[in-house]
């Protein structure tokens, strides 16, 4: 479903991505592990078309989207829930969610149904539908961000550090939700520092360091890998 071929990204003279190769197959839940600054967010922003690549190719379902604009990429079914959530803070929760379905705005009935599904997934958001998104707690804001991305009806959902800054119990909840979104048929690429928790729900994973993929493997392989255990799990 998604292929990255030798993807390179420079910020001035700094090479943020140094020849990334990876693929995500339809229906998979793939996790991207790596410390802060390893290049996970840069890679995600590049996939979504928000950063111009210095080299390489990105393909979505066989189509080259390397030079496509972010809005084209979203309408092709690749939606990202970004790091830091990037919500519309002084808009209501419901308006944030509805804007998530912006590319499907012609299908009003479909958006309403989808909104109901999101409210069923996150009942607290229904209660807070009229509150400013910026006034919610971190965990609730994360729900809005995930909900907003789901309103775009992704075929492939990119989630960048959804557990960042959340309490352990909420992290569990968010990851369970991601697992159930994946079980519902959405392909997921998840970037996480919380390696142990993320690997629990993933099919496969990659490990990034300084802009390169240094390791890849199935969940079991990564969970049992000595380097992963030492660097990211701590045991």
């Amino acid at each position: 479903m998604l292929q990255l071929e030798d993807v390179k990204l420079n910020y001035g003279s700094f090479r943020a991505l140094d020849g990334i190769n990876l693929s995500v197959r339809e229906g998979e839940l793939v996790v991207m592990l790596g410390a802060n600054g390893a290049g996970k967010s840069s890679m995600f922003l590049a996939i979504s078309g928000l950063r111009k690549l210095s080299g390489g190719k990105v393909r979505l379902a066989g189509t080259d989207i390397t030079r496509a604009s972010p809005n084209t990429i979203v309408s092709r079914g690749l939606v990202q829930c970004p790091e830091g959530r990037k919500l519309f803070a002084s808009m209501s929760v419901e308006r944030n969610l509805m804007l998530g379905g912006y590319v499907h705005r012609a299908d009003k009935a479909g958006l309403k149904t989808r909104l109901e599904e999101i409210y069923e997934m996150f009942p607290i958001l229904r209660e807070k539908r009229d509150d400013h998104a910026g006034s919610l707690s971190g965990g609730q804001q994360q729900m809005v961000a995930i909900g907003r991305a789901l309103m775009g009806r992704p075929k492939l959902l990119l989630l960048d550090e959804p557990s960042l800054g959340l309490a352990p119990l909420v992290v569990r909840q968010v990851l369970d939700t991601i697992k159930s979104i994946n079980a519902g048929g959405t392909t997921v690429l998840l970037a996480e520092q919380n390696a142990y928790a993320a690997l629990q729900i993933a099919d496969r994973g990659y490990v990034m360091e300084s802009g390169r993929v240094v390791l890849e493997g199935s969940r079991e392989e990564l969970l049992n890998n000595e380097t992963v255990r030492r660097a990211y799990i701590g045991g």
Partner: peptide, 10 residues
Amino acid sequence: QNREGAALVG
């Protein structure tokens, strides 16, 4: 309010 957020919803 959020330029990148807006781009990411299309």
